[in-house]
């Protein structure tokens, strides 16, 4: 699998915050009845639980985020994504469910630093003062769809489609340039 290269191959810029393309990430999209027992069991096998509305649950290196009333996104290692997909598919074989490996369809970024919020404040119609840790907010960044959450102390993560990774990095780089601090 060494032939795989993420959209921007880990590009990074530092202004008043550091913006980085996070490299290869495993992402598995799961559409199903979120109240199903088989689903809870399948996630349990991954060390995860079914997240509440708009929540993102993290256990170790894996997370699972609520994307819509019938959709979850499992975040895991890139290398294990195919296996996670196969395992979930198997576990949900008797349910009406659709499990797809979308690791290659997306790009992920981190925005880190004490003023990280100020970078995304310029791009997303999101109230960052009320965005709690553990909440996954799907919205837009300037002109493209983006999902944003607090992935650590002084760190936000952003997922967008792979094809617009360059655009997203352009947005983040411009918005984090020194002199552009808001407060």
């Amino acid at each position: 699998m060494s032939k795989a290269v993420s959209a921007l191959n880990g590009q990074s810029h530092t202004g008043f915050a550091t913006v980085t393309e996070a490299g290869l990430k495993g992402m598995v999209s799961l559409r199903a009845d979120l109240s199903s027992k088989a689903l809870a069991k399948a996630l349990k096998a991954l060390g995860l639980t079914v997240p509440a509305q708009r929540a993102i649950v993290t256990e170790g290196a894996r997370s699972v985020a609520w994307m819509s009333p019938d959709e979850l996104l499992v975040l895991c290692g890139y290398e294990e994504a195919a296996q996670v997909t196969a395992d979930l598919e198997k576990a949900l074989a008797k349910d009406h469910a659709l499990v797809t490996n979308v690791s290659d369809a997306r790009a992920m970024f981190t925005v880190s630093g004490a003023k990280g919020d100020e970078v995304l404040m310029k791009l997303c119609p999101i109230d960052f003062e009320t965005l709690e840790a553990g909440e996954m907010r799907r919205s837009r960044a300037a002109q493209v769809a983006a999902a944003v959450w607090r992935s650590g102390p002084q760190e936000l993560s952003v997922i967008c489609f792979r094809s617009v990774a360059g655009y997203m990095m352009g947005l983040l780089e411009v918005s984090s340039r020194k002199g552009g601090e808001i407060y």
Binding site: K122, A142, Q143, V164, Y167
Partner: peptide
């Protein structure tokens, strides 16, 4: 116009 000028005037979708 804000940030929407030059390279990021509008999103450009790129294939791998």
């Amino acid at each position: 116009t804000g940030e929407a000028r030059g390279d990021i005037f509008q999103p450009l979708r790129k294939t791998p």
